[in-house]
């Protein structure tokens, strides 16, 4: 209710309604009084319509001035007054979106893990579930299985099958660069956030991802962030043209907070702690 009176259009409408009501009462009263007391006088006009004549009356002064006023107002409104850029439907949409984005960002800037996870689940169900499935299992191979993503099994899967179509300058990662024990060791190391002693076999990965795994300044994906929302953000923004199918880029479609939330949610699928 409070908001209704803050709107300037509503304020103007109410003001106009009050004025119209007052004028109506006044004019009606005036004419009712005239009908009771007035006698018709004056000079009749020449025309006569089936016996009904018309007095030659001057325009009532108030009427004439009002009419003149509306003409002057029309010229002003026509030339300068019309709010050409003051209002548009798209403008209102833009303002609404900007206000919402600002509020959204300040409200969730320091969201805790539970909140992010809940938000991520909401976004996931709308944007990701159509391909990756409601449970994140990739629906029997229709898309990447996110229930193992971010864990050692996920890294092993990538080493075994390679990775394709993230669009980095280094190009696609071939399948089976490592196998057996070596793959196990590297997967363990990467899935643990590259902490601890680096296995010698990581040299195979370092060729593209760099010795620190950070991807040599954007030449290849930064695998030191594997298993964190950061990595999910990267995939969301790049999109993927992989072995299973194509994943569109979500750049600009999700806000950074939403991307982080999706990442948090996806990680919760494989890390049930």
């Amino acid at each position: 209710m409070n908001n209704m009176f803050q709107d300037n259009i509503n304020q103007l409408s109410l003001l106009a309604a009050a004025i119209i009501l007052a004028l109506t009462v006044w004019v009606a009263g005036k004419y009712i009084k005239q009908m009771k007391t007035d006698r018709s006088t004056g000079e009749l006009a020449d025309e006569n319509w089936d016996g009904i004549g018309e007095y030659k009356n001057e325009l009532p002064a108030g009427w004439a001035y009002t009419f003149l006023g509306t003409m002057i107002w029309a010229i002003w409104y026509w030339t300068t007054g019309y709010p050409v850029n003051a209002y548009s439907q798209i403008g209102e949409y833009n303002e609404e979106v900007a206000a919402h984005t600002k509020q959204f960002e300040s409200k969730w800037a320091n969201a805790d893990k539970e909140t992010l996870q809940a938000m991520g689940e909401g976004v996931y169900l709308v944007q990701c579930a159509p391909c990756h499935g409601i449970a994140g299992d990739g629906m029997g191979g229709k898309a990447a299985d996110l229930s193992v993503w971010g864990s050692k099994a996920g890294v092993l899967d990538t080493i075994k099958n390679g990775s394709k179509g993230l669009g980095f300058p280094m190009g696609d990662m071939p399948a089976g660069l490592l196998s057996g024990d070596a793959a196990e060791k590297v997967a363990e190391y990467v899935a643990n956030g590259m902490k601890g002693d680096q296995p010698a076999e990581f040299a195979t990965c370092a060729g593209c991802h760099g010795a620190d795994g950070k991807g040599m300044n954007g030449m290849a994906p930064d695998i030191s962030t594997y298993g964190t929302p950061e990595f999910v953000k990267m995939v969301l923004e790049h999109g993927k043209k992989g072995f299973i199918g194509t994943m569109v880029s979500f750049k600009g479609r999700l806000t950074p907070i939403q991307e982080k939330a999706v990442g948090t949610y996806i990680l919760s699928l494989s890390h049930n702690d």
């Binding site: 159509p130 199918g245 569109v248």
Partner: peptide, 21 residues
């Protein structure tokens, strides 16, 4: 075209409930 892909449409047109329960 911005958010669905060839393989998704293929699955979906063959059997919609296989991708959208």
């Amino acid at each position: 075209g911005e958010y669905r892909t060839t393989d998704w449409h293929e699955n979906h047109m063959w059997e919609p409930t296989s991708v959208v329960p």
